[in-house]
Amino acid sequence: MTTVYLDGVGIEAPGLRTWDQARPVLTGEKPFHFEKKTYQVATLIPENERRRASDTIHIAVNVADEAVNNAKVNPELLINVFSSYRGALKIVSHICNSLTLPGHPVSPTQFHNSVYNSPAAYWSIATQTKGPSTSLACAEDSFSAALLSAAACVFTHEQGVLLVMYDVESPKPFDKKYAIDFNCGIALILMPSESENTLAKLDIDFEPRKSEEMDIGLNPDLVKLINGNASAQPLRILSAIANKDSCEIFYDYLETSTVVVRVEPCN
């Protein structure tokens, strides 16, 4: 088991535009309105790179920036862990379409944006962070894997981690069979020790067995978000924090195993 302290959150999802705006929605004080918006342009990215950036990059950089600001940490001191179920599928789709055309024209910009670690790379360029940066994938269970990876970094290096999840609407023709209907990005700052900015203590463990446990009392609207976009999975932890609910959350991991997160919100 590994303990980390959640010090900051960034969020961009339908009806949940920022962490401050999301908190009263997660507690039920304010109603949830499923409202799809196009992504915000990430002005943090230098203009030269910004022109070339794609939706996944803008979303990932924006939520990362919000989380870093909320946690009041220096991003240069953090290890970056980025993860996504689909990555830059929209760009892959563009490229695969171009490859059917005479001469197989591939745009150099699209090619480098199609690389799975491009959001993490744009973030490091935008913030001049020069430390370790990992982009990892685990299909629908990408958050489970990313959370373990982040916890392992915090434990091993005794350093804070910026964990960023992002997935965007499916492009055509993937929208029929492999639909994601909305954009979602969530970033968490996970630290090795408690600070005045700590929102919750998280004990994270891996269990090589399937869990039958279910979340209790999760808002059905949020369940729809979580089921509709793998990168919305952190909402289960964030809902517990907003509601000051000490609980255990059981994340599926590859049909065979579970990542267990014991959440202890701070006052």
Binding site: V115, T134, S135, L136, A137, L148, S149, P208, L254, T256
Partner: peptide, 16 residues
């Protein structure tokens, strides 16, 4: 993972 029926942590790193 399915080839060996493994149940441990599994992930892919994709940093080019």
């Amino acid at each position: 993972q399915k080839y060996f029926k493994l149940k441990g942590p599994a992930l892919v790193i994709s940093t080019a």
